[in-house]
Simulated assay, not measured.
Amino acid sequence: MRLLFHLFVFLIAAVSLSAQVAVETAPDFTVKDVDGNQHHLYDYLDNGKLVVIDFFTTNCGPCQTYASEVSASYEYFGCNHGDVIYLGINWGSDNDLVRQFDSIWGAYYPSVSGLQGGGNAVVDLYQVQSYPTVILIAPDRSILNNHIWPPEAVNINAEVLAAGGIPMSCTVNAGLHQPETEERLQVFHPDGGAVHIVPSGLQGKVYRLTVHGADGRLVFDGSPAASGHSLRLAGGIYVAALTAEGRRSAVSKFIVP
């Protein structure tokens, strides 16, 4: 039994180490993100930008876990308004599923779906072996790191800083995924499996409140009431998201015991 356990640990480590792209020089591509914006890799590189790419799938547990970490690094370097560009390249999903992934798991950087944005072709071009794979590309087209692991903000930031990336404030309301700061969602647990979700700071906009389970299942979808919404949920991890005018304004992750 102990031998089997050590073999299992070895196999997991081997999978982690092999999670990378199989090219050393970045091939060019042009893709369109879920908001309809076009991204041409060599245009960014020719303008002296570093480029961080997060290759992901929407049903991958580690991809879900690390999406918010990549977002934190994206914000640290200016939300694509500095000398570092961040892109999420999906394999296998359409725009709607990628938007849902972004909303639930906190991916604020531009995301490209596999089916409609051209992500599948890029994944094939880079010979991505597993997910998530986060890479760093230099302006001279060399791939400086083909597997930043684990893709936590501190690790991504260290690689980008070493390559000359300059931190800067994230521009608010820059037209990408950056959420506004006035609106809030608070989650209270009055008893047992009951939760009370209360929005605050609402402005003169049309809002939508959604609650998803960790498996992506939608458990609530409606207009937020100022007094809040009481829901009785099974135990697990949930994400409440407040959106307005097609953009996320607030999010709150919570656990129901």
Rank of each mutant, 00 (worst) to 15 (best):
S113E: 08
D124K: 14
L231F: 11
R208H: 05
D215M: 07
V219I: 07
G192H: 03
Q178I: 01
D215G: 10
G193I: 02
P199Y: 03
H189K: 07
P199K: 01
P139M: 02
L218N: 10
I166F: 01
D124A: 14
S200L: 00
L176V: 03
H196F: 01
R248I: 05
S230V: 15
Q129N: 15
N120D: 13
T210D: 11
G175I: 04
N173E: 09
R141T: 07
L115K: 13
E245H: 10
A244L: 06
G201R: 00
N157E: 04
P150V: 12
S223I: 06
E182K: 00
P179A: 04
P224W: 02
G222L: 10
G117N: 12
V195M: 08
V128W: 07
E152V: 07
I197V: 07
V195N: 06
N155L: 07
G213F: 02
V219Q: 06
N157F: 02
L136R: 02
D124F: 11
R232Y: 15
K205L: 04
R208S: 09
Q203N: 03
N173A: 12
G216M: 11
S230M: 13
N157R: 03
I148C: 09
N173C: 08
P167H: 02
L242K: 10
H177D: 07
M168L: 01
G193P: 14
T171R: 12
A174H: 09
Q127I: 08
M168P: 01
R208A: 03
V187H: 02
V187S: 06
G192P: 03
